[in-house]
Structures are given as C-alpha cells and as structure tokens.
Amino acid sequence: MSKVRERTRSPEGDLPAPTPDAKQWVVYTQKREGAPFKWAGTVEAVDTELALQYAREHYGLDEACVGLITYEHGDSVDGEYSIGPLVPQKADGTDGDEWLVFTLAKRGGNHQTAGTVNAPDAATAINRGTAAFADGKACNIRVVLASDVHETTDEEMVIWRTHDMTYKLAKGYSKQVRSKWTRIRDNPAYEQYQKEDIETHF
C-alpha cells in the first residue's frame, strides 16, 4: 500500500460547511455521424463549459462516439409516459421557436433524438413532436428548446480519438482470453464456457 495513503488520518473536527448541489446536465452521445444522440447519463456542473468538459471526460470516454450534446435538466419537458405506445395525433403548425424532440421507445429505456419541431411553447412542442415522431413506437416525448442544447465541436471530440482504446472494452480481451483458456481447456469446453458467459450467467 502506498505510504502516503497509509498515513492518511481521519481529519478531526467538524465537516466543512455543506454546499448546495450544482446544476444537473443531461448528456447524450452519438455513435456515428448522422445517427441519433442517445441518452448516456448526467453530469453535475456550474456552467455549460464545465458541463461539456465533464461530459467529454465521462461519457465521451466510456465508449467510441463522434459527438455529444448536453442541456440543463430543468430545461427539458417530458410529456406523459404512456403504458403502451403513444396514440399519434394530428397537430401541425410551424410557428414558434425550434425545439429538439426526443423519443423513448420503452419504459426503462433510453431517450434519443428524433428531430425538431417549431412551437410557441413546450406543451405544443410535445403535441407536434408526438404527431411527427411517435409513430406508434414511442411511450414518451421529451422536448428542449434548441437554443438550450449545447454540442461539442468536431475539434474537441477528435482529441479523445487519437489512440486505440479497445483496452477499455470487453471485446478488447477476447482474443488473449481465448488463447490462454484454450491452453487449459479444449476448444469445445471453451466455446461452451464462452456461450454461458453471455447467455446464462452474465
């Protein structure tokens, strides 16, 4: 154990004064160019720049992606979460500001971007979003004013993609794990083990 850590003594006395939680930002990542942005998680940050920094460090490094967007949690509005698919409705009109629309395919799933609508307020944006994108396949519509959504630039994303990062993916180990196991177990036994790895046990 490192000596510095071994010497850590519990600080005596009272805890420092409590601090209020910072703003919550919701983060969505895009796997490849043109694909929808899918919900990845949240970060806690005081402003947009820090939120984007954290989002890149956390979700931008979790798995390969080409871009991410974030907005402050309080800026989004969710429509109702239906049990089955939302009933499509007629609601057209092009007046008002631009809203980014997200759909949720099933409860417990992840929201993803579907497109944009124009609307004078969130409720109308949800109605128009449902009409345009629910398509019998969504159980919830979420909208955010497009101007409240912040996106990483291409230059920012490229920094994180300059080296092989398969060491942080399970599949990055498949080859060496197989070659080491098959020195101990025969191929059919290994295949069975591998199958159960994914299907039954994990």
């Binding site: 798995e63 799933g109 180990y173 794990v177 080491k180």
Partner: peptide, 24 residues
C-alpha cells in the same frame, strides 16, 4: 434500470480484463 444497463456494459470490460489478468 437504464443506469444499470449502461453500467453493466462497462462491468463486462472490468470482468474480462480481470479474467485475462488471472489467466496471465
């Protein structure tokens, strides 16, 4: 549930690299 699904994807990497370390 959605958090667990996302976490499990990363746990698979932790487990596989651990298995590789033990095998090594």
């Amino acid at each position: 549930v959605r958090t667990m699904n996302r976490i499990n994807m990363e746990e698979a990497f932790h487990f596989k690299s651990g298995e590789d370390m033990v095998l090594t």
